[in-house]
């Protein structure tokens, strides 16, 4: 019994090493995925972020068509980086709605004028309230939402060229 006990520290250390090896092998991943995938869009109604473009509410996200919901802001650099890809998606016929986080109309208008405007509607989320209701943890993020208003897929970070097929597949799957 006592002899066995003397080996216990080594055994515990081996366990610890196991965890550490796992930590080293696991890809560095600081993404906190939303737990809302597979659930209906939370109820919300956001005012228009820009004059002349409609705002966004949960009813508009359940109109029978799958769509991309982009969470972005004019003050976010990666959002500018993904703008061309969003334009390309729009040209492929994808409906893109957006939620602008903590943004001012002037800044937003300048951003869209400079980088392009792929959005059908933009809701203004001044205090990230709706962003949090979606379980989104930053900008930019995109959600694929099916025609019944169910959240199907989440993409964290800017959508790059190589992400497009996955996004399109998710949109297809949401049909």
């Amino acid at each position: 019994m006592r002899k066995g006990l003397l080996w216990a520290p080594l055994a515990l250390f081996a366990l610890l090493v196991g965890f550490i090896v796992f930590g080293l092998v696991r890809p560095a991943d600081h993404v906190i995925p939303s737990k809302m995938i597979g659930q209906p869009v939370p109820g919300f109604a956001l005012p228009a972020a820009l004059p002349g473009k409609p705002g966004l509410d949960s009813a508009a996200l359940a109109d029978g068509k799958p769509r991309l919901l982009n969470v972005f802001a004019s003050w976010c650099l990666p959002c500018a980086a993904e703008a061309p890809v969003l334009m390309a998606l729009k040209d492929k016929g994808v409906t893109i709605d957006a939620i602008a986080i903590r943004d001012r109309p002037d800044d937003l208008a300048a951003f869209l004028a400079r980088w392009g405007d792929p959005f059908a509607r933009i809701g203004a989320d001044h205090d990230s309230r709706v962003q949090m209701a979606f379980g989104s943890s930053g900008v930019p993020e995109s959600f694929v939402i099916d025609g019944r208003g169910i959240i199907r897929h989440q993409h964290v970070g800017p959508i790059r060229e190589e992400d497009v097929p996955a996004i399109l597949a998710a949109l297809d799957g949401a049909r």
Binding site: H30, R102, D127, S137, G138
Partner: peptide, 23 residues
């Protein structure tokens, strides 16, 4: 805090932490 990850939202300067405090 979702942005800075190593801190509670009570100790964070991040905008999102501020929004979570507000919530």
């Amino acid at each position: 805090c979702l942005v800075c990850q190593g801190q509670s939202i009570a100790d964070s300067d991040a905008d999102m932490a501020g929004d979570m405090r507000a919530l």
